[in-house]
Amino acid sequence: MITYPFEYKRASSVAEAVSMLAEGGKALSGGHSLIPSMKLRLNMPDALVDVGRIPELKGISMDGDELVIGAGSTHADIADSQLVKEKLSLFAEGAAHIGDPAVRSRGTIGGSLAHADPSADWPALVLAANATIVVTGPNGERSIPSTDFFTGLFSTALNDDELITKIRVPVSAGSKSTYQKFAQPASRYALVGCAIVKQADGQVSVAFSGVSDAPFRDTDVEKNLNSGQEAGPVGKGQSIMSDNFASEKYRVHLASVYLQRALEAVA
């Protein structure tokens, strides 16, 4: 297994990475989505800009009421972070269920969000947590609400020459959260992943991965629950996926079972 030839460039700062990306190519973070797809020759960028050693992309800290996670933080960094466990256990819990230990040690939150695999875990987590994705491009920085970020199957609001630099997540006292995942048995990606954040006042936000061809906030379910009713059907209006492991019908069923389990967990 070998990728097509490409040029490897290593960036040492966000600014350098952005200027390198302006010449074409793709960012290389943990490489745990990009390299497998390049080995299978499903993906053939001319150049890779390694952003894995940029200090600005690392680090997890609080900024006011927001938890700020560097895009280059690995799943393991987040799962093991004391700060995340205290302030936003949802992210620690979710990160701990991504892939296997070696994947968690290399794969990054920024890479996962940019890749936007419909079965990845981070998308549901950032959606439910109302996170904001901060990106830098040739024209400077902009912030994209997670609800605007995922635009379809493997596609996002990110431009080719932009780099995700951090994820800002509002943290509020008294909230409860959970991530319930039914793993695809072979790949261990989410066949259904349901993330819920319940505020102190009882209002919930509900997001799903693995169910539809793009991760989504289930606004119908949220409306029902937030007005004191039963959740109702999951994934209304979504284009539900169907594959060897779950038909459309079963996926929707699983999603409602996992929604119920998530609701019990935050009850």
Binding site: M1, Y8, R10, L28, G31, H32, I35, P36, K39, L48, D50, G52, P101, A102, V103, S105, R106
Partner: peptide, 13 residues
């Protein structure tokens, strides 16, 4: 010191 899959890493990395 950390376990990684060497098939998913460039020598350059």
């Amino acid at each position: 010191g950390v376990a990684v899959k060497s098939c998913t890493l460039l020598a350059a990395q």
